[in-house]
Measured scan of single mutants.
Amino acid sequence: EPREEEAEKYIKRANGDYDKAQELAKKDGNEEIAEAIKEYKKR
């Protein structure tokens, strides 16, 4: 799923820090991806 791939990219950029990844996504205006990262975190 493209959303998950995007989320993974942010998580990698944030060195595995989900909260930081979420912030990066929000900064880029990717609210949807920020949500996907939140879902990811719950797994």
Rank of each mutant, 00 (worst) to 15 (best):
E1K: 13
P2H: 14
P2A: 14
P2C: 15
P2L: 14
P2E: 13
R3H: 12
R3F: 15
R3Q: 12
R3V: 13
E4F: 15
E4M: 15
E4L: 14
E4P: 06
E5K: 14
E6G: 07
E6S: 10
E6D: 10
E6K: 06
E6A: 11
E6W: 10
E6I: 10
A7G: 03
A7W: 12
A7P: 03
E8N: 07
E8G: 05
E8P: 05
E8H: 08
E8R: 12
E8W: 14
E8Q: 11
K9Y: 12
K9R: 11
K9V: 08
K9F: 08
K9M: 10
K9T: 07
I11D: 01
I11S: 00
I11P: 03
K12S: 08
K12Q: 10
K12V: 07
R13L: 15
R13E: 13
R13D: 11
A14R: 00
A14L: 02
A14F: 03
A14K: 00
A14I: 01
A14S: 04
A14Q: 01
A14G: 03
N15K: 10
N15P: 01
N15V: 04
G16N: 05
G16T: 01
D17K: 02
D17I: 02
D17H: 03
Y18W: 06
Y18V: 05
Y18K: 02
Y18S: 02
Y18E: 01
Y18Q: 02
Y18I: 06
D19A: 09
D19W: 06
D19Y: 06
D19T: 08
D19G: 06
K20T: 06
K20W: 11
K20R: 11
K20N: 04
K20D: 04
A21H: 01
A21N: 00
A21G: 01
A21Q: 00
A21P: 01
A21C: 00
Q22I: 15
Q22L: 14
Q22M: 15
E23R: 07
E23G: 05
E23P: 00
E23A: 10
E23T: 06
L24P: 00
L24V: 02
L24F: 06
L24M: 13
A25K: 00
A25Q: 00
A25R: 00
A25W: 00
K26I: 14
K26V: 10
K26A: 08
K27V: 08
K27Q: 13
K27Y: 09
K27S: 10
K27F: 10
D28N: 04
G29R: 04
G29H: 05
G29W: 02
G29L: 04
N30Q: 11
N30M: 11
N30L: 13
N30S: 05
E31A: 10
E31H: 14
E31K: 09
E31L: 14
E31T: 11
E32M: 10
E32W: 12
E32Q: 11
E32G: 09
I33K: 02
I33M: 07
A34P: 01
A34W: 06
A34L: 09
E35Y: 06
E35K: 11
A36F: 15
A36T: 09
A36Q: 11
I37T: 00
I37H: 00
I37E: 02
I37V: 04
K38R: 12
E39S: 06
E39D: 09
E39K: 07
E39P: 00
E39C: 08
Y40T: 06
Y40W: 08
Y40C: 12
Y40M: 15
K41E: 08
K41Q: 14
K41G: 06
K41H: 06
K42L: 07
K42I: 07
K42D: 10
R43H: 09
R43K: 13
R43I: 11
